[in-house]
């Protein structure tokens, strides 16, 4: 669905069609929850944050005017809520506890062909390495790699210049690589 389709739904909501907003929620619920989950490392909190993000959009729907993409507006709000949550829960710095990491590792399937097990292990390591990044680095990587946003979109979401996004993503990638090396997931 294109951004124009999103704004068409917004216009319908503005005209009183609440069902159009439910359609917007269904369209973006998974990517927003996924983003929040990776940011705050809690599925339950991620759902609450995503819900709050949608509610905030709805409450201000009358003020919204078509921008480049509806998703950048939505992710901008979700991102702010996630950072707020990290600040409030004292997890703004480096990521979560190892106990939670172990839970993630334990949750990964360990059966099946060897290559699947290796991939599963690699994904678990990636999750651990991501959680060791600062929120500033984590958010740009998530927006780029998971949401596929371009630098202009990311700049809009986090409110900085495109050049800052470019350098921050580069530093985040390098930091992620170093974290994986430290975790034994990559050769130094």
């Amino acid at each position: 669905m294109t951004a124009a389709g999103d704004w068409d739904l917004v216009r319908r909501v503005q005209e009183g069609d609440a069902g159009a907003f439910a359609e917007l929620v269904r369209r973006y619920e998974q990517p927003v929850i996924h983003f929040c989950q990776r940011m705050v490392n809690s599925r339950e909190d991620a759902e609450d944050l995503a819900q709050e993000a949608f509610v905030r959009v709805y409450r201000n729907i009358g003020k919204l005017e078509p921008q480049a993409k509806f998703s950048t507006l939505l992710f901008g709000i979700a991102r702010n809520l996630a950072l707020n949550h990290l600040r409030d829960t004292g997890r703004r710095g480096r990521g979560k506890t190892d106990a939670l990491d172990d839970h993630v590792l334990a949750a990964e399937p360990r059966t099946g062909p060897v290559f699947q097990a290796e991939q599963s292990e690699m994904l678990a390591l990636i999750e651990r390495a991501l959680n060791r990044l600062s929120p500033d680095h984590r958010e740009v990587l998530l927006l780029r790699e998971l949401q596929g946003m371009d630098y202009d979109g990311i700049a809009e979401v986090i409110g900085c210049r495109k050049g800052t996004v470019k350098s921050r993503i580069a530093r985040a990638r390098e930091q992620l690589r170093l974290e994986l090396v430290a975790l034994g997931g990559l050769m130094p």
């Binding site: 998974q30 996924h34 991620a46 994904l123 990636i126 998530l142 790699e145 690589r177 994986l180």
Partner: peptide, 12 residues
């Protein structure tokens, strides 16, 4: 490869 691995992370 890091990007590929991130995109392969399980979605909720």
């Amino acid at each position: 490869r890091l990007g590929d691995a991130m995109r392969a992370l399980p979605k909720p």
